[in-house]
């Protein structure tokens, strides 16, 4: 594949991406298409411009390791983000702000006491 062909592919996919950004389609379909397009372009640059096609497979491992680890770190932080939001939404950040209960056997009572009805 000549440099010009790679350039044209990169150009066309970029224009398609910008067009897609303004289109009103299902979110999951849009995001999936974007990820596929971006990875395709990234692979084109690495394979042709960075001459990975001339390198041994061992070099491919070095080149693709960050992608694998990047997916891993994204999945890892994803779980945290979801949990963090849920806590935030429900307004249950108190356990961090409150002092720990004096009686370790009954922590729930210590936390529930201020909210309970007072007589």
């Amino acid at each position: 594949m000549s440099n010009f062909t790679v350039f044209m592919i990169l150009l066309i996919v970029t224009v398609a991406e910008v067009g897609l950004a303004y289109m009103d389609i299902a979110k999951w379909l849009k995001v999936t298409t974007f990820i596929v397009m971006a990875l395709y372009k990234a692979v084109m640059v690495a394979y042709h411009f960075m001459h990975l096609k001339f390198e041994r497979r061992g070099m491919w491992v070095i080149a693709s390791a960050p992608l694998f680890l990047g997916v891993l770190i994204t999945i890892g932080t994803y779980a945290d983000a979801e949990k963090g939001t849920d806590v935030f939404k429900k307004g249950e950040l108190k356990p961090w702000l409150e002092k720990p209960a004096h009686d370790p056997a009954a922590p729930a009572e210590g936390r529930g006491a201020p909210e309970g009805p007072k007589h």
């Binding site: 992608l67 680890l69 990047g70 770190i73 994204t74 994803y78 983000a81 979801e82 963090g84 939001t85």
Partner: peptide, 18 residues
């Protein structure tokens, strides 16, 4: 690339939760 992976990963996580 790992530095960028971390930044983009954090971006995805923060956006997902907001």
């Amino acid at each position: 690339a790992m530095g960028f992976a971390a930044l983009l990963g954090v971006y995805a996580a923060l956006r997902f939760g907001d």
